[in-house]
Structures are given as C-alpha cells and as structure tokens.
Amino acid sequence: MSDPDESNIDVVRWATRELARKFDYGYWREKDKLGEYPWEFVRAFAQGGWLGALIPEEYGGLGLRLAECGVMMQEIAASGAGASGASAIHFYLFPPAPIIRYGSEEMKQEFLPKLARGEILMAFGVTEPTAGVDTSRITTKAEKVDGGWVVNGQKVWITNAQNAHKILLLARTSVRNEEKPLDGMTLFFTDLDRDRITVREIEKLGRSAVDSNELFIDDLEVRDDEVVGEVGQGFRYLIDGLNSERIVVGLEGVGLGQAALELATKYANERVVFDRPIGQNQAVAHPLADSWIRLESARLMAMHAAKLYDDHENCGKEAAAAKYLGAEAGFDACDRAMSTHGGYAYAKDYHVERLWREARLLRNAPFSQEMVLNYVSTQALRLPRAY
C-alpha cells in the first residue's frame, strides 16, 4: 500500500478505537444478559458517519475501501464489544453490497443514504434449514404475477429480523437445473412485512445482544422494481460480495482474540499464586505469546487479502485463508484466556466467557472451516473437488 493509504488506515483505526472503547465491558455484559440490541452503540457510529463506510459518497457514505472497513471492524471487536458490537455494525456494511453494485439507480438513491445514516435496518435472508451450505438447494420460491412476485418459503439464522425494516431476500424464480444449479435465484430488496413474514427468535449460545431468527414467509408480495439486478442472477451477486465479508470476518476474529488476550495478560500480571504472578510461569506465558503470534499472522493475511480486493485482483484463496486464520487464532486466544483465568473464567465479571462464546461462532459462520479447506484444496492445490 502507498503511504497515503496507510495514513487513511491509521486515521480509521484510531478514530473507531476511541469511539468503540467509550462502551465498556459492563455495557456489553448487560446487553448480553438482557438480550437487548445495542442501539446506543449503533447510533454513536451512525453519528460518526461510520455506518456508510462502504457506501459511495454520492449516496451519502464515506466511500472507504475494504482495508479501512476491516480495520474498523477489528477495532470494534477488540474494544470488548466482541461479536455483539461487530455484528451490529457489520450488517450495515456488507448486506447492502449487492444493492451498491447491482441495484437500480432509483433503489440506490432512495435507500443507500438512509442506510448510511442508520435510519433503516436491514436483514439478509439467504440461509435455509434444509439447504445448509448448498445454497443451490434453497426452496423459498418467488412466483411471477402481474407487476411483481409472490414469495413463499422459510429462512433461518437471519440476523436483525426482530427490528429490521427491509430484507434482502434470495428466492428461486426458476426450477433448479442440475447442470447449472446456481442459476435461477433472484435477489429482492423489499419490506420485511410482518403481516406476511412470521419472525421467530432463536435462543442461542452467544451474541445475545444481536438477534438471530427463523422466518416463515407466506404470500409475500414483492414489486418488479424491488428486484436487485437481473432476475435469475441473484446468487452471482452474492458471490461477488463473499470475499469482502470473509476478509472482514477474519479481522473480527482477530479483534475478539485481541480483546481476550488483553484481559488475559492483565490478569496474568496481577494474579499472584505461590508468591509470584502467574504470568511468570511459562505454562501461562507461552500459550499467550503463541496467541499473539497467531493473531498477528491472521491480521497480516487479512490485510494482504484486503489489498488484493481493493486493487481489484483475484483474492479468493487469500480471503478464505483470512477467515480461517482469524477464526482459529481468535477462538484459541479466547480459550487460552479462559485457561489463564482458571475458575474465574466462568465468572461473568471477568468477561472472557462472553468473548469465548462469541468467538466459537466464527468457526462455523459465515461458512465452516471445513468448507474453507475444501475450497483451498481445489483452488490452491488443484486437488479433486470433494463437494
């Protein structure tokens, strides 16, 4: 990167670090305990203009590159906000990407400024309970009618649906073709109409401040002008944005691990057993040092991938590797922080258990570590495809 680019990254890093750390561990513990959406945190980032970080300036955003946005998300997670804070901002940045790239000019003019200001919240409706990671097998169907479409089906693990005003919804608009299974799916950006969509929250292990939900869609009416891009090309629009999300998820994992490592090193310096701080013992010090190395390596891979992405170069393997390393290093650091705290790791006053619960998610989502290895084995090593 050139010096001006590095300067921009530093500005974003310090500004978002300062803002995120105004919300302390007590704030996030309370949100996690009560399952309350962190609206105060979101509004603070909206006031700073950060919700529109990836939205072009002509639509009211900051028009930043992925590298700056990734650094912002890393700093949010590292502040102690963890996945709860990162997810609350993440879903303003990345679900709108297909609209930015493929939406009609009218759609962009109407909605992107509102998203940038935090005036509307959107959900991202892709995953289905019977399809798993094989998105080609979704069964939510949109049937053509005069002037629009009627959608029926089911979605699962949909973030923000308790509060969202709009939904970016993937549905089949033609029957699955075995020769081209990813064709025939269409993206719609429409109202999350609760008269036609039943939203049922899922009780889950971590990230309780940000809701996850099942959706049951019954005769949802969608207009023709709410189609994003071309009918039948929706999956390709999603794929176009997956590399950027994987890179940023990797950096969020790094941030989670950094938060846990900061708590663990503070405790290791202060906790005295047998007349010495426990951090003086190599059995404590070495795993923490190893986590620092792994986190820094994951961060560098993610920033390398972000540079490739921003330079419009092929970055599929690097993006996948960034997600893999960030998830592994982040969770390992949280797990080692748990070990460092011993029995106190289970006490919510020490906060590491929340980070540990949240970091575990990244090994499964937005796609699993095994699928990363499948992808890299075929794309980097040219081994036969296993899926």
Results as ranks from 00 to 15, higher is better:
M122A: 04
G103Y: 06
G60A: 05
W50G: 06
A78M: 05
A77P: 04
L93N: 01
A83C: 04
L93C: 04
R65I: 00
L112W: 03
G132E: 11
K114V: 05
Q74L: 14
L51Y: 10
A131C: 12
L62G: 11
G153R: 04
E110F: 02
P56W: 01
F94V: 03
L121G: 01
G60H: 03
M72D: 09
I89G: 11
S79M: 10
G63I: 04
L62I: 06
E143Y: 01
A88L: 09
I120T: 05
Q109P: 00
V145H: 11
K114R: 15
H90C: 08
Q109E: 14
T139N: 07
A86V: 07
I55S: 08
A142I: 14
P113H: 07
A88S: 15
H90S: 05
Y59D: 10
P95C: 08
L64M: 12
L64H: 07
R137C: 00
G80T: 06
G48E: 06
Q154P: 00
V145Q: 15
G132F: 02
G70I: 06
E75Y: 09
D134H: 14
A123H: 04
V133K: 02
I100W: 00
A116P: 11
G118C: 02
K114L: 15
W149Q: 11
I55R: 05
A88F: 11
F94A: 04
N152L: 01
V151N: 05
E57K: 15
I76W: 01
W157F: 14
A142R: 02
Q47A: 09
T139M: 09
E75P: 06
V150G: 01
L64Y: 10
S104Q: 01
A83L: 14
S104F: 06
W157T: 07
F111V: 02
A67Q: 08
L115Q: 01
L62A: 09
A161N: 09
C69I: 07
E128K: 08
F94L: 09
E110K: 13
P129M: 07
G103T: 10
G148L: 08
E75H: 05
E105N: 04
G63R: 01
S87E: 13
T139W: 03
K114S: 07
T130A: 06
E128Q: 15
K144L: 07
P98H: 03
